[in-house]
Design a protein around this nucleic acid. Structure first.
Lengths: 218, 218
DNA sequence: GAATTAATTGAACGTTCGTTTTATTAGTTT
DNA sequence: AAACTAATAAAACGAACGTTCAATTAATTC
């Protein structure tokens, strides 16, 4: 046999992408064989090479696409919020929602950096630090305006990224908490981390009574 | 050739362990070949099988040993601290110090779970949740005694674990912060996360003025 | 010093790896 | 309907994989 009836380059390409994401997220890039990928797509291994020059380029493409989509989505969201506190909350909401919605993409981006070639790694790391830098900018602004109380910005930025990204490890859609409930919990945790003062508190010069979300664990 | 002069089973075993940890941490379990490992040790590939039945058992051994060492070390540390607040601080200090001291072990434990067989995974996951459970116990106690203010214990536990474990990703020994400086910063962040009240505050029924460590970022 | 055990080598096993080449058919254009 | 392009299959490439086996030498025991 050769070309199959109803075969379509675009459909095959996206089928390859989808299958690759699933497989890489599940078993890892190194563990995924091209034959495994081909079978998942329902095609012979050789067909892959019409769409990508090699396995490495597939991984890079998946990660680059994800990072650019992530950055674009956040830039769109970033403009909406008014005030540092709300911008900070918006970042955390966005970050967690996005992570939950595109689990595989995010998981690959977090786990497969070491499988990238040196050149590709440099590109992805740059995109990643652009994204993380946008959180840092919010913390900077929060300090300048006096809304936040932060001892070490770089360290706190990393702490928040790690904390929120960690959701991806344990979150399941059928859990007791929905994605937005988790997000709201993390907004509160984040506000605590940055030492956010209540808006009235800043004006009055008073002090905060900690208020958390109403959801309690069992 | 056959047995080499000065060859010693114990030394070879620990050389294999050390090389394996380095390699797996650096390039990953799947990416590490037995020939690569053997060369790193300075031995022929076949020599490995005198010490481990197969590659999987090596990974499992590395991870089990690490988890048991971690648990043992924390149990030793756990008894010392007085009061919930100090116990909590001790956990964070311990966790970060241990992570910094045994980077490779921790990195492997975090990254290579998916490369374990089902049976081995179950054992490691159990050890892991025992460790994380000991943090949760501290949070529970903090809530009961009124020292902490936490909306969702399970979620906050995970947030703290993720935040502190994340140190391993970016910490370098030659960074601007020493391990214990980082640890102290994270103790403050942790206390914020759990809504810890100052000891005097609890008695007086007053409110907190956030106080962070003195180290500022540049 | 002979017998035994410990530690390793060198060569090979069959399998799977990522990838390439060539041929063949499906769809599109002229 | 002929010519052309797109999309695939089938088969094979050499290299590398984890692992096994038999032979060999070093160290230890008797």
């Amino acid at each position: 046999m050769a070309r199959t009836t109803g075969s379509d380059g675009e459909k095959t390409r996206s089928a390859i992408d989808a299958a690759a994401k699933r497989l890489i997220a599940r078993i890892g890039y190194e563990a995924m064989s091209m034959r495994q990928l081909a079978e998942e797509v329902g095609v012979q291994p050789a067909a892959f090479y019409r769409y990508y020059p090699n396995k490495q380029e597939l991984l890079f493409s998946v990660m680059r696409d994800h990072m650019e989509r992530l950055l674009g989505a956040w830039q769109q969201e970033n403009g909406k919020a008014q005030g540092v506190r709300e911008r900070f909350a918006a970042f955390i909401r966005f970050h967690i929602q996005y992570h939950v919605e595109r689990r595989d993409d995010v998981h690959i981006a977090n786990m497969e950096l070491r499988s990238l070639s040196a050149d590709n790694l440099a590109i992805i790391v740059k995109l990643r630090s652009t994204y993380e830098g946008s959180l840092r900018d919010i913390l900077d602004e929060g300090i300048e305006t006096g809304a936040f109380d932060i001892a070490d910005i770089a360290l706190t930025t990393r702490a928040i990224i790690a904390m929120t990204t960690g959701v991806n490890v344990w979150f399941r859609a059928d859990d007791r908490l929905t994605a937005s409930e988790v997000a709201e919990n993390y907004v509160e945790l984040g506000l605590r981390l940055v030492g956010a003062k209540k808006i009235e508190t800043i004006a009055k010069g008073g002090c905060d009574v900690p208020v958390g979300p109403k959801i309690r664990s069992f």
